[in-house]
Design a binder for these strands. Structure first.
Lengths: 204, 204
DNA sequence: ATCATACTAGACCGGTCGGTCAAGTCAAGC
DNA sequence: GCTTGACTTGACCGACCGGTCTAGTATGAT
């Protein structure tokens, strides 16, 4: 163990991954540390060796999922090789298949971890709120870059790309929310493509 | 006390209103019965005289807020006297001013109670999920009727009004989610009007 | 051999959770 | 005046919460 090069002994990872699944499938408050430890086959003492608190565990989970997103399907969907508008379709598709898979496994649609936590925690923990907000900002930026490119190539008429990008992110979170409330991933497939119709003009 | 004509002695109402505020401002799990009782100046025993469980209290709160919506600003916004498209603007405005007021009072944006509870509870309580879903369906129907009218009067081109209505509801929930995560009601004002650009065609 | 350190084990802490219950207050019905 | 039943009071329940702590094990460096 030199230079903070901790080998992530598996225990930490096991805790992290278990918590990730459970927070995503239920909620922050509904999942207790004991339950996480039981499922991860880890003792309380070990847990607190790796994480100073439940809150910090949640923070780590958020970072972990954000990384997976950034280097996983977000990187794929927003592939610069793809024509800008197709990237939007790709993203909707990815969101759909991901929720479908999760839904088939658990029987219930978990929705978006960030959206879930944002609504649960924003009024309780301002630091976590800011962290989630930063993740949304990064996602929004992916949309914005895509829209900028589409405008530049003439695929779309000029518009307020930043505002429209935020609107698209909001719409995406919104359809995931509705799909979760209906417990039906198909909602994403059905409503998703309309994301391309959203437009905010450049005025005022 | 004749004929079940219970005069709602105030105690029940006080519990209900206190719980409503607290569930909205925080979350279901984060608010305990003791805390509700303390704030409502009611004893535990009285609480359980009026409500069989915390869950049923939440159900009652949902009904209560849904009623206020239906006969309050939803009825106003979807006023049949207004031209269809203006109703959408009215609704966004109403959502904005409501969140602004709540935000000014509490310092933090509470968001939409139904959206909050939907994300928190959908995977935990299927009955509550269905109840929230039914409320969303009713809201969606308001949009649908509005769109149908707009299509009929020629204000909008023919479209899949049911799907578009659902998309609009999702978008509304989405911008409230983003606004809450940013803790900034102005997001609603900024992104809201783009709800009119959403369209889902009649094909597939 | 020994010593520091990373990690594990699990009993334990005060506090809070949702919920119960026995005892009592009070006003209306007879 | 007595009974009935709605309502209140607050002590109490077992379970669980997030978190602490002490004791012990395993490993690698010296």
């Amino acid at each position: 163990m030199m230079l903070g090069m901790t080998p992530d002994t598996d225990t930490r990872t096991r805790i992290l991954m278990t918590a990730r699944e459970m927070f995503h499938g239920r909620s922050y408050s509904d999942v207790g540390i004991q339950e996480i430890c039981d499922r991860a086959k880890v003792q309380k003492g070990s847990f607190y060796h790796f994480f100073p608190s439940k809150r910090e565990l949640a923070m780590a989970v958020i970072d972990n999922v954000a990384d997976d997103w950034a280097y996983g399907f977000v990187a794929e969907a927003f592939d610069p090789e793809l024509p800008p508008v197709e990237r939007l379709d790709y993203m909707i598709d990815a969101a759909y298949y991901w929720q479908l898979a999760a839904s088939d496994m658990e029987g219930r649609m978990p929705g978006c971890l960030f959206g879930n936590l944002a609504l649960e925690m924003s009024t309780r923990d301002d630091v976590m709120r800011a962290k989630l907000n930063a993740i949304f900002d990064k996602a929004m930026d992916k949309f914005r870059v895509t829209l900028d490119e589409a405008v530049q190539t003439g695929a779309l008429a000029a518009m307020d790309t930043e505002a429209t990008a935020t609107a698209m992110l909001a719409y995406l979170e919104g359809i995931i929310l509705v799909a979760k409330t209906r417990n039906d991933p198909k909602v994403i497939l059905h409503l998703g493509p309309a994301i391309k119709t959203l437009r905010i003009e450049l005025n005022h």
